[in-house]
Every structure is written in C-alpha cells, then in structure tokens.
Design a binder for these strands. Structure first.
Length: 995
DNA sequence: ATCCTCCCCTAC
DNA sequence: TAAGGTAGGGGAGGAT
C-alpha cells in the first residue's frame, strides 16, 4: 500500500482504522483489560462474567440508539435514563428542567470544577509540583528502564511519531475540532451562507452551553452498568506503581479526591478500589458525532468547543423557552448516547458557561439577568474562563480573589497591569459582560504537531528522522484541511541545565522551550519543502540532540488551497492531463484575442500556438466522427464526483508520443481507458505513419511544434568566444535519442524574456496576483543580479518563487566571494536573502556561522554543501548558478515527490528523467526512501557537468518542454527554470542567448 | 504607528 | 513503565 496514502488515512481516521478492521476486537480488548484487572470477576458485581460478555454484544450502539432522527418521547427517554442508573432516575422532565435554578446555587460557588474532558495542568509545567525524583533509586530505575530495549520511545522506535498520536488523548482532544469541521462542513457552510450573526448587537440573546458529564469515563462505562456507582477513572495504564496520568474520573471517584492529571499511584492511594478503564477513542468519536448531530438538529447556530462541549445560540430557534430546548437536547443526548450532559442557560457565553459549572452533573441551570451581580460577587476569579494559574496568582498578589474584589479595580489599573485586551476582559467578565457571539464557522489559523513525551535521541540521525516524520505528519494534516501555510515555526524543548530525569516515565521533565520561525513567500503543504525548511530552522538552534525532550512544528499564515486545484483532483493522472489541456486552451484563446504586436517575441509565441491550433484542427479533421466534433476530446465530468465540472482531456494530437510510449504499460492503459481506447489506436497509427514516412520516424507532434517554432529561432552568434558545439561529444541521450544525431550544429532558440513572461502568466496567473502583494513584504532583489532583466510582474513572480526555493544563506566560501563584489551588487545579494532567514548574531557557532558581513548578517548554507564548487568561477556567475541549481533541484525533488504521491510509478519518473546518470540501484524500489540520495545525485550531476555541458542541461530542459503536453507540472518546471538558466548563461557567455 | 517574532497563557 | 497535544490569543520588544 502506498505509504503516503496510508499515512493520510491514518491521520484522519486514526482511531477507527484498527477497530474497523475487526469490530469485535474492541470488546475483546476491553473485556480482556477488565478481566486482567479483575474487574470482570468482581465478587459483588451483579452481573456474572458471562452475562457481562453478553451485555457487550447486545449493548452495541447500533442496536440501542435506533433511528437517529427519531425523537424519543419524554417518557421513553426518562425510562432510558432510569435504566442507565444515572442521576435522572427519580426525576420527571419538569424537575430536570428546573432542578438547578440559580436560587439553589449559592452554596456551589466555592466549588470550581473543571469540565470533564478538561485537561489538567501537566505536572511538568507546575513549578510547585514535585518535578524531580528525590528518590535516587527511583531515578535509577527509570534510567535502567531506558537502557533496556523498550519500543515506545524515540530511542528505539523508528515509527514513534506515527504511533504516538494514535494513542494520545491530548492529540485526540487537540485535533478534534478539525475533524468536526470536516464532518459537519455541510451544516457549517449552510449557516455561513445564511444570515449568521447579523445585527445581533441590539438583540438580547439566549445562549445554551452544553457539556457532557465526565465524558471520557461515561462513554466507557455505559456498557458496564455495574461500574456506574463505583469510582472509575480513565487511564493508559493500571499499574499502581506507575506514573500514568488519570485523564478523567467519574463523580464517585472525585468524591475520593481523584482528579484528572494525578498519577495512578496517587489516585490509588486516595481510593484503593479505584477502577481504571482504558481509552476508547473510536467510541469517543462516535459519541461526539451523535452529540453534535443532536445539537445541529435542534439549532443551527452551534459553536463547537470540544468533543463534548458546545455553545448554542437559540435566540431564533422558534421556541422561546431556552430551558425547554436545553432539557429536550439533554434528554435526547442521554437517550442516544447513554451518557448524560449538563447545560447552562444565560444571555451570553460567559454566563452560560458559568451556569453549566453549577449544573453539573447531569443538570441544567439558568442564570437570569437580574441575578448576575449576586452570582458573580463571591465567585472566585479563577472560575472565569480565561483566568488560569498565572493570572490567578498575579491577581492574588494584588489581593484580588473574587469577582467582587476584581470589580473594585479600575479599568486603567487593569490595563496597566495586564495590557489592554486582558485588562478589558477582566473588567468585563467580573461584571458578567461578554460581547462575543456564537461563532458557527471558525477559521483555522494554524496547524501543527508536537511531541513532548518519549523524546530521547541517541544521535543526530535519530533526531533528523524524527523531524522528517513530524513534517510528514504536519504536511498530511495541512492537506487534510485543504490549507497551505507560509509561516513555519519549530519549537524545541530542551532539558534545563542541571535537570535530572523526570519522575514521569519518559516525561520531558523540567525544560526550557525555544521557538523559531520562518516565513516563506509562497504557501506550502509540501512535505519536502517543509522538511527542508524545518531542517534549516532546527539547525539554527545548534542544540545537542541528547538534551532534546520535545519537538513541535507549527504552520501558520494559512491560505486555503486554490479551489480550482482541489476541483481538479490534482492527485490523478487525469487531472494532469486535463489541466494541461485547459492551459493549452487558455493559451490559444489569449493569443487569438490578443492584439498583434510587432515584436518578434510575440510572434514566436504566436507561431507556436498557432501551429498547435493548426495541429488541433488537423487532428479534428483526421478523426472527425461525422458530427464534426473531436472524439479525443472526452468529457469526463458526468462520471465524476465533481458533477458541475466538465473537464476535457487534451486532444490526442497534443500528446507527446515519445513520452507516452516511454510510460509504463499500466499508465498507458489507464490513459487509454480515459481516451476510450483511442490512444492505442492513435499510437498504432503513429507507428504506421512513421514506417511510411522515414523522416518523421522519431518525431512526435510536439517535436513538430518545435520544428515550426524553430523557424523563428535565432542562430548562435558565431562571434562568441565560446563555441558551444565543440567538445561535447557525448550529448545527453534523450528519450527520442535520434533527436540530435547527425544534425547540424545545435542552435539555441532566442526565447525572449517577454515571451517567457507571457508563458508564465498564462501558466500561473494566481501566483502572479499573489506575489504582487507579497513582494512588498518580503523584498527580494535576486532579479537585479540578473543584469538587465526587465522588472515585469512575471519576473517578480519567478523570483519570488525562487526565494522560496533558494538556499537560505551562503557558505563561508560564498562570503569571501561576495566580499570581492562591488558594493552595490553585494548589497543586492545579501538583501536577496530574506532578513528572517539570515542569522543576526554570529560567533557562538563553530561550524555554520562563518563570518559576519559589515551589516552583521551571518550566513550559512546547510542544505547544499556542494554549491561551493562553483566558487572558482567569476563571482557574479557563482551566485547566479547556485541559485539556479537549487531551484532546479528543488523543483525536480518536488516533482519526484508529487509523482510518487500521485501514484505514478518510479519508472515513470525514471523515464522522464532518463538523462540523469542514475544507477540501476538508485532506480530500484528503494527510490521511495531515497529522495535525499536522489537530490544528492542531482547535485553531483549539476555540479560536475553544468560547467562544461550547459548544452546538455539545455537539452534537458528542451526535453522537459517536450513533456509539457503530459503534465502542467513539467510545464511549470520548464517555464520557471529556463529563464533563470538563460539569464545565467547569458551573463557568462556574453549573449549566446539573446535576452 | 504598525508589523513581526518569540514567547507565555489559556482552554479543551 | 506510557503515549505531557492543539490551537487561539495576547504581550514585550525590536525592526521598519
């Protein structure tokens, strides 16, 4: 199975995959867990073991929940609740809805309970907690454990990252909202398109905050009624000596003082008969879905807070009794999920949330406006959402502990002490003021992944491997959300100086954290780009990998992936073809509608396009089926999910036959299917034509185009001091190997900048628009080093892309070369390294930071160590070529990755790049794992050969151009690389190419 | 004045 | 043994 696809799958159904494979395994697992812990053999359990097993089988939700959209009668639901043995059992609906009115609540103020999936403050963050082992034996035990061959840490497990997230409850909680967004996107977009949140200021709102009761426990024990009244907690491990942390405890357990975040051993000390149950993420996911389905059924303004908690704005729900709505929702939740929920009702989000605290467990509470002041007066400030440990302490030091006391502090003083925003928040909240609205659609602003447990590296290889896997994970998450980002932040937790191994097994202990970020001009979700940049940022920490206890990667400045790209399902062969087809059409359209200009460049483009169009017409006439339409233009729209989109394949005459022939048979078959069998016929016909017409034997249609456009080629200037046609007896063998054989000296086309500019505009209009804006933010003047290039928008686009791909900085050798340059050129080049990529302080690094420039910018090149090979050449030239090389390498690497991701076989890639001196080993199945060695090869190739074989390289790109009818990606490669290459060559060979 | 990066804090 | 994540928001301080 394709590794990328598998990862993607795992990423988005991480908790379902295993269980779906074997539905029964969950019950078996759970039973064996309980059995192992002696739960099933509880002497006092009312249900014998065999019955318990029976309950498992019958208790499956599919049977119990019934049709989802059936509203159970109130009686049914109450009896359902009664059966559950929950606290509702003796209450009528009426009582349920009114049981926790504000008037009953005064006594509860002192109890500030966290909600049930709420995450405890990790002990490693708590400076007052016992962070270090005072017990030497214990510490040494842990070290021994580390030394032994465990498979759950980065020390021993190469798949650590992948496995880790599947078992992390915090990961489940943290990524839950994204899963929700995906799953309920229909409902969210409906509301978004409607009249959400308009004119809401004047109106008094009715807000319901609803929260499941001890969610993580309830979901597990609903199948084990004998546990309902017993103290139960959810945890990874039941080892009473261990340092596993309690995730969630039910109310009986809380009565013993068991709290989320406690070590199991501490919890057992307080409550020896505490029952520990394992997580069941699939069940959590299932119940959360049921929970939200119910909420959306009752109200279209739902703001998801977490898997078990939401805000509802029921102001316009039709029913003007919010308490009744809350009651109905809670009963339906209990009936469907067999878990209880509590609700708070008030006029704003703050008060509704506070009311829920008072309502728990399994109750609801309404705070009327007139009672707000009384309610808040004695409420501890810590109970206000947004006030955590730090703020609480800060306020405490100012003798403020309750909201009443906080009201005494002036707004100005709060601003001064806490800043404007937090000051305002404090001032408003302690008065019960909250102007936030229920936000149905919440835009994702960042996506990331982080691991702070089990991180122990033996060497830099382990660490790099880990980082690369983290990039993969993040890349998949970005793609899963359909976004790309421009800001990449790497966070590292490093063991604090003097800190010992933490008590917590494989914990991160006492750490200092640091983070660094980089902003790139073009958003990306590409794993190779992320890996490249991440590696670079990480290197800038200059940290001993043995000291690392946690690593995180976060992507922000997100932009959603271009809709047209999504629409084209870029991961298919079809999309490559259709996209190419669209481009050809656009190109033709543009040309035919453009006003004729006198410049030769436009004529070149014109001639090329017209010839294409002619060929297109020609093929139409050859393949006409009587209706006048071209049969090779096949509409694929109807059979695909994107029913509104009609995409057409490029006409057969646009395919480069040589390229098609060189493809693996299965790809040809696939294409043939897409062309309804006509491709093979076309190929056969082509063969026949070839046999019948010797001089066309190796020419494809695309080559004919080349021939036509060659009419406007300009000859190499014979006065040039360097004769490009001599001394290269071994020109690169392209697929169409006869291409250059026995021909006159090579001529180089004079492709003008404006022609290329035209081409790139057609190919990438979005990028064009985008960069126009971003250029001002990240000024980059690489183009100024390209001598006399015009500063058209198109050129700017290319250079901006270039910045993304160019090395972050230069080597020591580069630095010495740069020093010799004229001041203005030097300044240009230095400036072309985006400021945030350069390193401001120099001196503490033995290897990377080699020197400071007068403007105090230190530079390094970590990724392309071989670029210094160019330094023997004239300085200006060096910089140019380094840049080009890196660009080429990156594009090829990216192309390779995409080929793999798109399911194209490595042989396809191999045939596309047959000009590369790849060994048979490097073409084997190991390709999957050897992208870096491929890059290495390419680097060597370019470095060793380009100096003498510019011609060869140019041929490569001619080849790429010929491939363009196959893939828009290749077309982009061509249009991006060629001008740079030409500019570089022109600089050095004094006008071989006319620019 | 405004933006950016690097934190810190908070919630679940 | 155990799985201490994720995302949003804001402040300080520096760069422009």
């Amino acid at each position: 199975m394709d590794c990328v696809a598998a990862n993607k799958l795992l990423s988005w159904v991480p908790y379902q995959l295993e269980e779906l494979v074997n539905k029964t395994s969950k019950q078996q697992k759970l039973s064996s867990f309980f059995s192992h812990k002696g739960i099933l053999s509880l002497k006092n359990a009312e249900t014998p073991v065999n019955q318990n097993v029976k309950f498992d089988a019958e208790g499956s939700l599919s049977k119990d929940e019934g049709p989802k959209d059936t509203v159970l009668s109130a009686e049914d639901q109450v009896s359902e609740c009664r059966e559950l043995g929950s606290n509702v059992h003796d209450k009528t609906c009426e009582e349920i809805s009114t049981e926790a009115k504000f008037t009953d609540l005064e006594d509860e103020h002192s109890v500030v309970q966290a909600s049930d999936t709420s995450v405890h403050r990790p002990s490693y963050m708590d400076s007052s907690s016992c962070m270090y082992s005072k017990n030497c034996k214990e510490a040494s035990d842990i070290k021994c454990a580390r030394a032994s061959n465990q498979s759950h840490s980065t020390l021993t497990d190469p798949n650590f990252v992948e496995n880790y997230f599947r078992n992390s409850r915090l990961h489940f909680i943290g990524t839950w909202r994204n899963r929700y967004r995906k799953r309920f996107s229909n409902m969210l977009s409906e509301v978004k398109g409607g009249k959400a949140n308009i004119n809401s200021d004047m109106q008094k709102h009715a807000i319901i905050h609803i929260d499941m009761d001890c969610f993580f426990v309830s979901v597990i024990i609903r199948n084990y009624p004998e546990l309902i009244d017993k103290p139960v907690a959810v945890c990874h491990s039941d080892n009473p000596k261990g340092t596993a942390e309690i995730s969630s405890a039910n109310y009986p357990a809380r009565d013993y003082g068991v709290r989320a975040g406690m070590f199991v051993r501490d919890a057992k000390a307080r409550c020896p008969h505490l029952v520990i149950v394992p997580y069941d993420f699939e069940a959590y996911e299932e119940v959360a879905d049921q929970f939200y389905s119910i909420l959306h059924k009752h109200c279209n303004k739902v703001q998801a807070l977490s898997c078990d908690e939401a805000f509802l704005d029921v102001t316009e729900c039709g029913n003007n009794n919010p308490e009744q709505i809350a009651s109905m929702i809670r009963m339906e939740i209990a009936g469907t999920t067999r878990c209880t929920a509590s609700a708070g009702i008030a006029e704003n989000l703050l008060l509704a949330r506070l009311a829920t605290r008072s309502a728990k467990p399994n109750g609801q509470c309404f705070i009327p406006s007139e009672k707000v002041d009384d309610y808040l007066n004695s409420l501890p400030v810590k109970a206000l959402p947004g006030i955590g440990h730090a703020l609480e302490e800060k306020l405490k030091s100012r003798q403020v502990q309750t909201c009443g006391q906080l009201r005494m502090v002036s707004k100005e003083a709060l601003h001064k002490d806490f800043g404007t925003k937090i000051g305002d928040m404090l001032w408003n909240y302690c008065r019960g003021i909250d102007n936030r609205m229920v936000e149905v659609v919440q835009e994702t602003k960042s996506i990331g992944a982080e691991v702070n447990w089990g991180v122990r590296f033996d060497g830099s290889t382990d660490c790099e491997n880990f980082l690369m896997n983290l990039c993969k994970e993040v890349s998949l998450r970005l793609q899963g959300c359909g976004v790309q980002g421009r800001a990449i932040t790497v966070k590292v937790r490093k063991r604090k100086k003097g800190a010992e191994e933490p008590i917590k097994f494989m914990g991160c202990g006492d750490c200092e954290t640091m983070s660094r970020s980089m902003t790139i001009p073009v958003p990306t979700d590409n794993v190779v780009s992320l890996q490249r940049i991440t590696k670079q940022i990480f290197a800038s920490f200059h940290i001993d990998v043995k000291e690392i206890r946690g690593i995180g990667l976060q992507i922000s400045k997100l932009e959603s992936v271009d809709i047209s790209r999504q629409g084209h399902e870029e991961n298919t062969l079809e999309s490559w073809l259709t996209s190419s087809s669209e481009k050809i059409k656009t190109q033709c359209k543009r040309i035919s509608s453009s006003v004729k200009q006198d410049t030769g460049e436009v004529l070149v483009a014109d001639a090329e396009c017209q010839s294409k169009c002619r060929n297109y017409e020609h093929s139409k006439s050859i393949y006409t089926n009587g209706t006048g339409s071209c049969p090779s233009e096949i509409n694929l729209g109807s059979s695909r999910s994107h029913e509104n989109r009609t995409s057409t394949l490029p006409p057969l005459c646009y395919l480069d036959i040589d390229v098609v022939k060189s493809l693996p048979q299965e790809i040809i078959s696939e294409m043939n299917d897409m062309y309804k069998g006509e491709l093979c016929a076309f190929l056969e016909k082509h063969e026949e034509d070839g046999r019948g017409n010797a001089h066309l034997s190796t020419k494809s249609t695309a080559e004919e185009n080349d021939t036509i456009s060659a009419a406007s080629y300009q000859r190499v200037n014979c006065d040039t001091s360097i004769d490009m046609t001599v001394g290269h007896s071994d020109p690169v063998k392209l697929n169409s190997s006869a291409r250059n054989e026995g021909k006159q000296p090579l001529c180089y086309p004079a492709v003008s900048m404006s022609n290329l500019a035209f081409e790139s505009k057609v190919l990438n209009p979005e990028a064009n628009e985008f960069t126009a804006g971003s250029m001002t933010r990240t000024p980059c003047k690489v183009q100024s080093a390209h001598a006399s290039c015009s500063r058209s928008d198109d050129l700017q686009m290319r250079t901006t892309n270039l910045v993304d791909l160019m090395p972050n900085s230069l080597t020591q050798a580069d630095a010495s070369v740069l020093e010799q340059l004229p001041e203005d050129l030097k300044a240009d080049i230095i400036e072309s390294l985006p400021a945030h990529r350069a390193v401001n302080s120099v001196g503490n690094d033995p290897i990377g930071f080699v020197r400071a420039f007068p403007n105090n910018v230190g530079v390094q090149n970590l990724e392309y160590p071989k670029t210094h090979l160019w330094l023997e050449s004239p300085p200006k030239w060096v910089v140019m070529f380094q840049t080009s090389n890196c660009l080429i390498l990156n594009i090829i690497a990216e192309l390779y990755t995409k080929s793999r991701a798109n399911g194209l076989l490595s042989s396809t890639f191999q045939s596309m790049f047959s000009f590369l001196p790849l060994t048979s080993e490097s073409c084997s199945e190991e390709w999957d794992e050897t992208l870096s060695s491929l890059c290495e090869l390419l680097t060597q190739y370019v470095n060793l050969k380009i100096e003498s074989d510019i011609e060869e390289l140019y041929n490569c790109f001619c080849f790429l151009k010929r491939c363009s009818s196959m893939s828009h990606l290749l077309l982009e490669v061509y249009s991006n690389v060629l001008p740079l290459l030409q500019a570089s060559v022109s600089e050095n060979y004094g006008g071989i190419f006319k620019l």
